[in-house]
């Protein structure tokens, strides 16, 4: 089961500006964390006590009044005194750049200045908590691929290979298409809800030509059907997956595709594939 991260959002001092604290609380909740908001006017003692009592993984301190240099380090000191300095503390508000090194030297992990997207803060907290807990970052919540979109098979010649699939296996050839970006000619063969894609190199510098030269004909890649491909790419990258394509490119059938680097996937070449909406109809 995935760990649910607990965060205390706190307003130290007398500052009454809590728009930021409220927004970040809701954004972290929407991201899947449990968030406790202290309300206004908390002393460092109250914040440390609440964090320990609520057994939180992280504290977010928000201050817009300029009192951060006194109040943030005091929270850190109290956490340390009570043996709770494994709690990850981050800060935000109106905090001049030049104060950030000082705050970091006092143990504040990161200071988010105005304009930081809330998602960035959420991901930072998540990554830091997981690292602290020794949880493999591959456990960062991801949206799993939805289906096998197709299996790509490298062939020397479509003409020589197609009869096996069509005549001997009795499958249906849907279409043949050239994909200039990959310098390949592709034959789509329907099989149940998925397809086989036979790939023939159109020139010698085609990745398929290089593949056949190195490893011979055979299974080339497995394509995983996803939605919102850019977000999936971002998630995989957060999980330390190396991508060949960090942004989607146009593949066969007008789909958006991106390949993972086989070094990250135990030598199997995986492709993420998002079919355009029109085609699904």
């Amino acid at each position: 089961m995935k760990k649910t991260i607990r965060v205390l959002i706190a307003k130290p001092g007398l500052d009454g500006h809590d728009r930021g604290a409220l927004v970040i609380s809701q954004a972290l909740r929407d991201y899947g964390m449990e968030v406790i908001y202290t309300g206004l006017r908390q002393t460092p003692e109250q914040i440390a006590a609440a964090a320990i009592q609520e057994d939180v993984d992280a504290i977010g301190l928000s201050c817009l009044s300029g009192a951060h240099n006194e109040l943030f380090p005091e929270v850190m000191r109290l956490l340390q005194e009570r043996g709770a300095d494994d709690i990850i503390v981050v800060g935000g508000g109106v905090i001049p750049w030049e104060d950030i090194p000082f705050l970091e030297s006092k143990g504040i992990k990161k200071v988010f200045t105005p304009g930081t997207p809330t998602i960035e803060t959420a991901k930072y907290i998540e990554k830091t908590v997981f690292e602290r807990d020794g949880i493999s970052t591959s456990q960062v919540p991801v949206t799993p691929p939805e289906r096998i979109d197709h299996i790509g098979i490298a062939v020397s010649s479509l003409d020589e290979t197609l009869p096996f699939y069509v005549n001997q296996l009795g499958l249906t050839l849907e279409a043949i298409e050239e994909v200039p970006s990959q310098r390949v000619k592709v034959a789509f063969i329907k099989i149940g809800d998925t397809r086989l894609e036979l790939l023939e190199a159109m020139s010698e510098d085609s990745p398929i030509a290089q593949f056949i030269e190195k490893r011979g004909q055979g299974v080339h890649h497995v394509a995983l059907g996803v939605s919102d491909i850019q977000s999936r790419i971002d998630e995989l990258k957060l999980n330390d997956i190396k991508m060949i394509n960090e942004a989607p490119v146009i593949g066969a059938g007008g789909a958006q595709v991106a390949f993972m680097h086989p070094s990250s996937s135990h030598k199997v070449l995986f492709e993420l594939c998002e079919k355009s909406k029109k085609e699904e109809v």
Partner: peptide, 22 residues
Amino acid sequence: DLPTQIGYDSDQPMARGEVGKV
């Protein structure tokens, strides 16, 4: 400053860090 706005003198514990700031 915030201590004045919230009715605390500068030497009260709640005023810590806030004296003369905003």
